[in-house]
Design a binder for these strands. Structure first.
Lengths: 157, 157
DNA sequence: GTCGAATTACTCGGATATATAATGTCCGAGTCGGGCAGG
DNA sequence: CCTGCCCGACTCGGACATTATATATCCGAGTAATTCGAC
């Protein structure tokens, strides 16, 4: 999986912790994680297209959350960065070679291999959709309550 | 995910359906699915390293199943082709930038984002491990019982 | 006719190219804030 | 001193390189069957 997913999720969490009334520019987010600013910007654009963030141009512009963390699931983030298509793509090789010489009715039912992998991937997607970024935020704060203040202090520089 | 997973799984199923006492060479398997022989061979080598297939060199050589389909899970096939590492790799960017200026104790607990994605991936792996290739084979034969004979006929040419 | 050894053809296995996608960089369009001149 | 306009700087957004990975190919090492000759 692309590492952009990790970057995007962390940035969403950070935006919530900072809780600024003003948007946060890419440069600040990138500095906070030591990431290449221009490339991070690309990932953030994907989040904007997915309506997870909103962007505002011009001076004092930047990105902010489009909705609270409780309404952003891990599935949303993955779909925004990786796209909607399945990881396992059935190319129907069963119909090639030997398959080309078999009657059509053999392929009336879908590829059972595709179904099996599809079922597993569905379990993955459900697990991702069941967890919101608010859950992750809460879990982190349970152990380190002062985390938000600590971050605010650093970004205020 | 690499398409080699699809190829590998189909080849295992085919080897079971053909049920030959002799090994089946790469060239035949590749012809049966219209796949590039040399590259398919590479994937089959990975299955040998994972001890899913056994290979025998020389004339009349080729590949055969190392154990019955009921003892080969989809997880086994994925691990053999894709490797054992997780799809989501946490690179601990929380420790960079702003993180470098925070006390060590903040990182006593693992990255909660990694845990959340890890839980989802575990669900995926469990779903894969719960399905054997024998299950897939049975599902296919339930709808097309004559499938095995049909394939044997084609490969006998 | 039978046994044995050399030969030959066939197989896997890994080293070597190519294509595609992920990663990283750069520059332009747009917009807001601040400064400056005029009233 | 207040108001309006102009200029400049800062931001996102997408077009353009570069690197890593997946895909595809080729050739050599090894093995077993086969053939040929000798006994």
């Amino acid at each position: 999986m692309s590492e952009g997913v990790e970057w995007a999720a962390h940035c969403c969490l950070l935006l919530a912790w900072l809780d600024q009334d003003r948007p946060v520019p890419t440069a600040k987010l990138a500095a906070g994680f030591e990431l290449p600013p221009a490339y991070l910007n690309k990932q953030l654009q994907a989040l904007v297209r997915a309506e997870i963030l909103t962007s505002t141009p011009g001076p004092k512009g930047g990105f902010r959350l489009a909705r609270p963390l409780s309404e952003i699931t891990l599935m949303d983030v993955v779909t925004a960065i990786e796209g909607p298509e399945q990881a396992f793509r059935c190319t129907e090789i069963r119909k090639n070679g030997a398959g080309a010489a078999t009657p059509e009715r053999y392929f009336a039912i879908p590829c059972q291999l595709d179904l099996a992998f599809g079922a597993a991937e569905l379990a993955w997607r459900k697990a991702l959709a069941a967890q919101t970024l608010a859950d992750v935020q809460a879990a982190a704060e349970a152990n380190t309550p002062s985390l938000a203040d600590n971050l605010k202090g650093w970004y205020a520089r």
